[in-house]
Design a protein around this nucleic acid. Structure first.
Lengths: 191, 191
DNA sequence: TCCATCGAACTGAAAATTCAGTCAATACTT
DNA sequence: AAGTATTGACTGAATTTTCAGTTCGATGGA
């Protein structure tokens, strides 16, 4: 786990968080990770490789950190509350969440110009949407699967939109959370 | 004024649409505009000047294109249809919309790392949200103003989220339009 | 003559990428 | 066990590429 390689990916996430994907300098990444620039190339062939692997890393991490809090054993958990908790998880002012959200937003924005990133991104997005759709199924069993899929797409896209507004200073965090809860409410109300 | 200078700005918009702000190369811009690099520096001193003027150019254009369809006389058109039309306007595969959406996304993404951009962006966002809230008021007169404001924030944030997913190849355009219509529907249904 | 424009050759600096090795741990003999 | 390849992680320094920005002589039109 605590590979050098993984440490580099962690460092890349940090650098991307503060400089953006297009602001990432291999030398700065090396300094951040406390290794030589050459080691970066040893592990990841080229700059594009770094980005590729970092994207994977980030979406894995996001996935893990979404999946982690599933103490399904507790009988008191209501699926709707679970859903709210999981989505709100991405709207918190902690270094970890800020890092992931910022990096995710950057990758998303970079993919607009870099076709190489698109496939991974689309896959990660799909996985996420699927996860949320499943939760919606539990929270609202009388709905149809396609309806859940559409709701999940809306909720996750909204979350991305709110998140970038928050990070770019157009929307206070508390307000973003409130808007998201409102959206969950409406989605669960639909026939 | 519709000179070479303006042609360069138009070309810059195109280049930014395909490479992003941080991917804009002066030489590529010159080629796109069909002029020499020297001429670029002749008109805009340096790269920062190009970006500055181009962003001005783009937001002028965006403003014009949102303001253009203001003939919302209460008599002929259904306000809900108006609302749908206006929001769907941003999800179309035409060069103009692609350009504007891409540039907007770039600004949004850049603002995460560049605090200087934040104020203008927040103001523009606010204006937009306000516009949509007003339309919601017309389409759903029994709702309260704060509810309309929240719906407008959700719809515009969702639109930004869908738009970037579309542009980054994670979501087909038609599907994005469908999801947006679904969201309008839910927002107008809420009590 | 003045202005917009071209073109092409440069400069300098910042970044990316490569390379020739070092070092330490592991496996392979004898 | 001692000696010896082998390998994988790693480095510092050098090389190559990419860009912004400059300079200057030439051209053609108002």
């Amino acid at each position: 786990m605590s590979d050098r390689r993984t440490e580099i990916l962690r460092a890349a996430t940090r650098v991307i968080t503060r400089r953006g994907v297009r602001g990432l300098r291999v030398a700065e990444l090396a300094a951040e990770a406390g290794v030589s620039t050459s080691l970066i190339y040893y592990h990841f062939t080229d700059r594009a490789g770094i980005l590729h692997r970092t994207l994977e890393f980030i979406s894995d991490r996001a996935g893990r950190y979404t999946a982690e809090r599933e103490p399904v054993g507790e009988d008191d958990t209501d699926p709707r509350t679970d859903l709210e908790q999981i989505l709100l998880l991405e709207l918190q002012d902690t270094p970890e969440v800020r890092e992931n959200s910022t990096a995710w937003g950057e990758l998303r924005a970079s993919a607009v110009f870099d076709p190489e990133l698109r496939e991974d991104l689309a896959k990660a997005t799909h996985t996420w949407v699927h996860e949320i759709a499943e939760l919606l199924g539990r929270a609202h069993p009388m709905g149809t699967a396609p309806a859940h899929a559409a709701s999940a797409e809306r909720l996750t896209a909204l979350l991305e939109g709110l998140s970038v507004r928050w990070l770019s200073g157009s929307l206070p965090l508390e307000h973003a959370r409130h808007l998201l809860l409102g959206a969950i409410d409406t989605e669960l109300r639909r026939p």
